[in-house]
């Protein structure tokens, strides 16, 4: 996929060209938004707003990594969503993902591609613990650790995505990892042995 050609076509008004870029990055964008916000609906809103903002401001894209540029839109959109959430805190009417484990209609009970239910349960535990600890980080630190450790971006792309220098990425990542390590120690007994931080000598 030639991203630059698609961007140029989109600049001429070809929405289909832009939508091809959206399809290429929407999973990653939604993942980042979900890990930063910790809420499915908010993550959807943030992702949609990020792509709309990206299209409107496509002329501001000056080459380089389109992925990093789009992720910047996503992180900005997430910060907006967090600010909005702080101004107007809401209580969901529907049960949240955390407290509907006993609900038989929950998608958690549907057949999955995972090899065994045990593995699936372990992953769910780990995911829950990590998400809990991520939400305890400040949004700036959370964004860096999500981009680098979960999405596997390199430092340069992460720096462009959060519009900060490389040194800031290094420093925030180290602090975020320290906080996550301390937080996850509280889940030691709940996590499988291979994920326990103090298990390795």
């Amino acid at each position: 996929m030639d991203e630059i050609a698609l961007v140029n076509s989109a600049l001429k008004g070809e929405l289909d060209a832009f939508n091809r870029l959206v399809l290429a990055y929407q999973d990653m964008a939604f993942n980042v938004a979900y890990r930063i916000l910790g809420d499915d609906d908010q993550a959807q809103d943030a992702t949609q707003n990020a792509f709309l903002s990206a299209y409107k401001n496509l002329r501001a894209f000056r080459g380089g990594s389109f992925k990093a540029w789009v992720m910047r839109m996503v992180t900005n959109s997430c910060y907006d969503e967090l600010r909005r959430k702080q101004r107007h805190p809401t209580t969901p009417i529907e049960p949240t993902r955390e407290n509907n484990d006993d609900d038989l209609d929950s998608s958690d009970w549907l057949p999955s591609d995972d090899p065994t239910p045990e593995v699936s349960m372990e992953q769910a535990e780990v995911e829950h613990a990590i998400q809990h600890c991520l939400e305890r980080l400040t949004p700036d630190f959370r964004a860096v650790v999500v981009l680098v450790d979960i999405q596997g971006m390199d430092y340069d792309e992460a720096a462009k995505s959060i519009d900060s220098p490389l040194g800031t990425v290094k420093s925030r990542l180290a602090r975020a990892r320290l906080s996550l390590r301390d937080c996850l120690r509280g889940f030691e007994e709940l996590l499988p042995a291979e994920y326990r931080l103090e298990g390795e000598k």
Partner: peptide, 28 residues
């Protein structure tokens, strides 16, 4: 500890986008 944490973060399952976020002509 840091190495294990990094492995743990990598193991976090990727959440698939629940819908398409493509733009329609009416919105864009």
């Amino acid at each position: 500890e840091f190495s294990r944490l990094k492995r743990m973060m990598k193991a976090v399952p990727s959440v698939k986008a629940p819908r398409n976020f493509t733009l329609s002509a009416t919105v864009a």
